[in-house]
C-alpha cells in the first residue's frame, strides 16, 4: 500500500476512478456538487458525465452492482437480482412497510408541501393525527414552519430520508398530476370542473 509520500498525484489518476472510490466508500448518496467539491478541477457537470460512464462500465461488465440516483445524489447499490442472498446475510424479518394511510398521507405532503394538517385531513376525509406522528418519527416528514392561518398551524414537508427510503432521485421523479390516469372520465370535463368554477357540471341537465 502507498503511504502519503508515495501516493500518486491527482494528475495521474482518472477522475472516474476517484469518483468510483468515493461512491464505494460512502454510506449515503453523494451529490455531484459534493463530489466536485472533493475532487480538484472538476465541475458538477463533469461528475455527471463521469458517473454515467461508470454506470455504463458496470453494465457492460455485468457487475452485481450499479449506480442509482437517490435523493439528488448517487449511490452504489447491488442489483435487485441479488436481493435474496443479501437478505440471508441480514437474517432477520423484512422490515415493515409503510401502511396505506401512511403512504396516502405522504403522497399528499409530497405534492402539497409545505402543508398543514387540516389540509391533509380535508383531502383524506379522516383524521391524520396518528399517521402524521408515525411519519414524523420515521423521519419521512418534518416541520417546515408555521402557516399564516388561524392558530398559525404547523406546516409539514418531506425529508431527504423520504427520498432515500423510496429510492427517488428527487420529488420531480413522482408522476406529475396530469400524468395520472384519470379513472373516471375524460379530462376535458375534469378541467372544465376545476377551472371554470362558474360553469355547471355533469353535462346537460335533463
Amino acid at each position: 500500500m502507498t503511504d502519503a509520500s508515495t501516493a500518486p498525484t491527482r494528475a495521474v489518476l482518472d477522475t472516474k476512478h476517484i469518483v468510483e472510490a468515493l461512491l464505494f466508500a460512502a454510506d449515503h448518496p453523494l451529490t455531484s456538487v459534493q463530489l466536485a467539491s472533493l475532487i480538484e478541477d472538476t465541475t458538477a457537470a463533469m461528475i455527471e458525465d463521469v458517473v454515467r460512464g461508470l454506470e455504463a462500465d458496470y453494465v457492460m461488465q455485468r457487475r452485481a452492482f450499479g449506480i442509482k440516483r437517490i435523493a439528488d445524489g448517487f449511490q452504489i447499490v447491488t442489483r435487485s437480482d441479488y436481493a435474496a442472498w443479501i437478505e440471508r446475510l441480514r437474517a432477520a424479518a423484512p422490515r415493515p412497510r409503510l401502511s396505506r394511510p401512511a403512504l396516502e398521507t405522504l403522497a399528499i405532503v409530497a405534492y402539497k408541501q409545505p402543508v398543514a394538517r387540516v389540509e391533509l385531513e380535508s383531502i383524506r376525509g379522516v383524521s391524520v393525527d396518528a399517521v402524521l406522528r408515525t411519519l414524523l418519527e420515521r423521519g419521512m416528514v418534518e416541520v417546515a414552519g408555521r402557516g399564516e392561518g388561524l392558530g398559525r398551524p404547523l406546516l409539514y414537508r418531506t425529508t431527504g430520508h423520504f427520498l432515500e427510503y423510496f429510492g427517488l432521485p428527487g420529488l420531480d421523479a413522482l408522476p406529475r398530476p396530469e400524468e395520472l390516469e384519470v379513472l373516471f372520465a375524460d379530462r376535458e370535463r375534469q378541467e372544465e370542473l376545476e377551472f371554470d368554477s362558474g360553469d355547471r357540471i355533469a353535462g346537460e341537465d335533463e
Partner: peptide, 28 residues
C-alpha cells in the same frame, strides 16, 4: 372524490418504489 383518487394513485406509485427499493442494497 377526484382529488382523493389521485392521491390514492400516487400512494400506489410510492408503494411500487418502496418495493423496488427494498431489493437494492448499499454500503451502510
Amino acid at each position: 372524490i377526484i382529488e382523493y383518487q389521485q392521491f390514492k394513485e400516487i400512494a400506489e406509485h410510492l408503494r411500487d418504489h418502496e418495493s423496488s427499493r427494498r431489493l437494492l442494497f448499499s454500503r451502510g
